[in-house]
């Protein structure tokens, strides 16, 4: 089964034409290649800040009886967070402008493309750049000796899954926003997830009730998955991580497609 077959199975009513939307977005960002290249830089800054700075202050971290250097512990969570941030930024900021001001989507709907095709195209495109960054970052982790297991090969598809899940969510949310001020809500949600998904420290740092809440965060599942794969501590719990992200992808992308349809077919 090819890519559009998989997509059509997950999101009813989509055709192969979403690929044209991806191609259109690619054509429009070629002029902004500098922004694309510098984007790859971002997770390295976090890694540098943690590796050079905070890890010296923190030292080692104990998780489930094993001891890790702080940088080794945080790096996989940075991978997951970067995948999330890239996808949300692309899916929300860029799409919002298109949806509210530019009439690009209106000219697309004059062609055989359907709103569902457009939504799928945007979701796919939004995580493409994130995938590029995740790949670079994962390679850098290997070079810096932050990878402890061959399971880490699966961290890349895991990062892609995180990217798709959050682009779908970002796209679904953006369809109900009205002004740029509303966008602040997305930024706020992003920050909430980034700070409280056991990214910077083990879940055990939180008090018991907050541990329960943190496990509702999709980024927690993404970070946990990446961390277990990179550190080689894979277990049955990771299947739950995957299920949460897959479920989020399917629900949010169908929601986004439905919202696109009602916005573009008035």
């Amino acid at each position: 089964m090819n890519a559009s077959g998989v997509v059509a199975a997950l999101i009813p009513g989509s055709s192969h034409r979403w690929a044209h939307v991806v191609a259109r977005n690619y054509a429009s960002t070629r002029s902004a290649w500098f922004a694309t290249v510098t984007g790859a830089f971002e997770p390295f800054l976090f890694l540098a800040s943690i590796g050079i700075g905070v890890s010296v202050l923190v030292g080692d971290v104990d998780v489930d009886g094993r001891t890790y250097d702080y940088t080794t512990f945080v790096a996989p969570a940075m991978l997951a967070s970067a995948a999330m941030n890239g996808a949300i930024t692309e899916a929300s900021f860029n799409t919002f402008g298109k949806l509210r001001w530019h009439r690009i989507y209106h000219s697309m709907t004059a062609t055989p493309l359907t709103p569902t095709d457009i939504a799928v195209g945007e979701i796919v495109y939004a995580q493409l750049r994130g995938t590029l960054y995740s790949t670079i970052f994962l390679l850098a982790m290997v070079v810096l000796g932050l990878v402890e297991s061959w399971w880490a090969v699966l961290a890349l598809p895991a990062a892609v899954l995180i990217g798709v899940a959050f682009s779908a969510a970002g796209l679904a949310v953006v369809t109900v926003l009205r002004t740029w001020q509303d966008i602040d809500l997305i930024v706020f949600g992003q920050m909430l997830l980034f700070l409280f998904s056991a990214t910077f420290y083990p879940l055990s740092v939180y008090p018991e009730p907050i541990q329960m809440v943190a496990q509702l965060s999709p980024l927690f599942h993404g970070a946990n998955l990446c961390r277990d794969l990179v550190l080689g501590t894979v277990g049955w719990y990771n299947l739950i991580n995957v299920a949460v992200l897959l479920g989020m992808t399917v629900v949010c992308s169908r929601l986004a497609a439905r919202r696109f349809t009602s916005l573009l077919y008035k």
């Binding site: 923190v58 971290v61 702080y70 700070l195 409280f196 910077f200 420290y201 740092v205 939180y206």
Partner: peptide, 11 residues
């Protein structure tokens, strides 16, 4: 909360 108290607890 996250950096000051969370990471702070480790530091």
């Amino acid at each position: 909360l996250s950096m000051g108290i969370g990471v702070g607890s480790l530091v």
